[in-house]
Design a protein around this nucleic acid. Structure first.
Length: 518
RNA sequence: GCGGUUGUAGCUCAGUUGGUUAGAGCGCAGGAUUGUGGAUCCUGAGGUCGGUGGUUCGAGACCACCCAACCGUACCA
């Protein structure tokens, strides 16, 4: 008993929660996606910029670490000079800092994009991590809503470039001034009601999750969830709850076209117009939405792509004007076979106050962010990723280990590589030839190259089609027969090796294409 | 943060009212087979039973506290 305890304790291999390792397939999928997104942004005339993972904490915004909980929300640490630094939690705040710091060298309007990991120190959940990738585009120094309209159209184009069919996504657009105006109208204007406004916006944001009844409860007295936990509501009177719900969630948004009820931006806008004399905020928000809608329709972006939708809330603090988000509209089945509504995969809006925090002058800006990691999960389930999987390398087996032979195997490998074929010489410790084939098999290698003494004497190589061989193995149960059959194996002259390998790879590719269609 | 559920081998899980040396399947390693992957057979390695303390002659099991994971909820700039 005591002897056991004296064993050295093994270090437990573990990852901090909320973080994940990414395998080859994930990385290739991300690369594929970011390449497609980048292409769209470039075409719109945006240029890349990169900022570091760390910023001084005060540059990031409201989360100044206090002595008690320095890492609330963000990961923070103190530099040698005791200044607080934090890992960035989005790509917008660092951009604002970058623009302010380089204001004299930057030509406004500054149209820029960047991709990168961001970090949030909060509880992870399914599909939510503490490190994830965003891909942003922003226009800094453009005050007009045409800049916002362009962002919406670029988001739509990006969705389609990623292979999401029209109708499987929608860009929804609202304006914070409309929301603020309405809240002002029910007596929630002014600084003293900031907390109440926040509670209302949060409640509205839960529409997707809890439906209309849940939102009503959250606007009013509060809501009890299935675990018995109680969430305090915004405490609005029934009448005010009705006003909010009717104007934002139940406002008319459909009209008849060719005998069918379809979503209509005009219908939304004309309803808003009836209230547009509510207050200055509201009517300005209405005007901006109207202008944007004109641009969408002028450019041919109809309601199947971009919708004016006053139920969009989006972000809670720094947005000042138009807000927009990209939403997937199809059902996704997750690994557990459950249907999941994916919802928002990206969004943004106008943040006129963010850069000017650093400056003595106003600097308007608008931009959006795509949640790459999240979108990748959805695209995987949609079968839009990993279609053309990378083929594993051809494995050149090592039969003899003398220096001269090793040189020959390496040369065969180089010949394949020089012809553009992925190839590797077996580098493992196993001396058994069988183990080398086992390695190639598990590596999903398509072909093994074999040259022992006999082949070398004849200037030949054996080329084994591992895919075909695997298929044939199903028909053989006797091991001796299986070994002697040397199935799917061809002896060719060394000089013809590359050509024969190409031929087999092409045949395998044809096979995959055929099976893929079934 | 709040509420619930669960912690036994790399993975999935058994383990009786508290009773001897904690098991199985899969996976992994070696061998049958040092020139042929699969199948089959043989052998083996691998455990702080989440942690600490307690009750008991005796705890994987019972009690207390702690930790972690999962689900819901809150927060999410």
């Amino acid at each position: 008993m005591n002897d056991k305890k004296k064993k050295p304790q093994k270090l437990k291999a573990r990852l901090p929660r909320g973080f994940v390792d990414r395998n080859a397939a994930d990385i290739r999928a991300v690369n594929e996606m970011t390449a497609k997104i980048r292409e769209v942004y470039e075409r719109y005339g945006f240029d890349p910029v990169e900022t570091p993972l760390f910023e001084y904490t005060d540059a990031l915004g409201k989360f100044l670490p206090d002595a008690d909980r320095p890492n609330e929300g963000v990961f923070s640490l103190q530099d040698d000079d005791e200044q607080w630094m934090s890992l960035r939690y989005d790509l917008t705040a660092p951009l604002a800092r970058h623009v302010a710091e380089n204001y004299n060298d930057i030509q406004l309007p500054y149209r820029t994009y960047r991709a990168g990991y961001v970090f949030r120190n909060e509880k992870p959940g399914p599909g939510r991590f503490r490190q994830f990738m965003q891909f942003d585009a922003d226009t800094v120094g453009a005050a007009g809503v045409q800049a916002d309209a362009e962002m919406c159209m670029m988001m739509a184009d990006t969705m389609e470039a990623l292979g999401i069919a029209r109708g499987d996504y929608v860009i929804r657009v609202n304006n914070r001034k409309v929301l603020d105006g309405l809240l002002e109208a029910i007596g929630l204007g002014g600084d003293e009601n900031a907390l109440a406004r926040l509670a209302v916006l949060r409640a509205l944001d839960k529409f997707d999750k809890f439906g209309i009844d849940g939102v009503k409860l959250l606007l009013g007295p509060g809501r009890k969830d299935e675990s018995g936990d109680f969430t305090k509501g915004a405490g609005l009177s029934d009448e005010k709850v009705g006003t909010v719900v009717n104007n934002l969630l139940f406002s008319p948004n459909e009209s008849v076209q060719n005998g069918q009820l379809v979503y209509s931006n005009q219908r939304v806008l004309s309803y808003l117009q009836t209230n547009s004399n509510l207050n200055a905020n509201f009517s300005q928000g209405y005007d901006e939405l109207w202008t944007m809608a004109q641009m969408f329709s002028a450019c041919g972006y109809a309601e199947d792509r971009i919708r004016i939708d006053v139920s969009v809330v989006r972000g809670l603090e720094y947005y000042t004007g138009p807000v927009y988000e990209a939403e997937l509209t199809f059902d996704v089945t997750n690994e557990k076979g459950e249907k999941v509504v994916f919802g928002s995969v990206g969004g943004g809006g106008r943040y006129d106050g963010l850069v000017s925090r650093f400056m003595g002058q106003p600097v308007p800006a608008t931009g959006f962010s795509i949640g790459v990691s999240r979108l990748m999960t959805a695209l995987k389930n949609l079968g839009k990723l990993g279609q053309d999987e990378v083929i594993a390398p051809v494995v050149v087996c090592v039969m003899d280990r003398d220096t001269e032979s090793l040189g020959r195997y390496q040369k065969l490998t180089q010949e394949l590589r020089n012809s553009g074929i992925r190839a590797e010489m077996y580098q493992g410790q196993k001396k058994n030839f069988g183990d080398q084939l086992k390695y190639a098999d598990r590596r999903n290698s398509p072909i093994a190259i074999i040259q022992g003494g006999d082949e070398r004497a004849a200037n030949e190589v054996q080329i084994k089609d591992l895919i075909e061989g695997k298929r044939l193995s199903g028909e053989i149960t006797d091991n001796t027969a299986w070994r002697e059959a040397r199935s799917a194996q061809y002896a060719v002259a060394e000089k013809d090796m590359v050509e024969k390998v190409r031929e087999i790879l092409a045949a395998q590719a044809d096979d995959r294409a055929r099976n893929g269609q079934d």
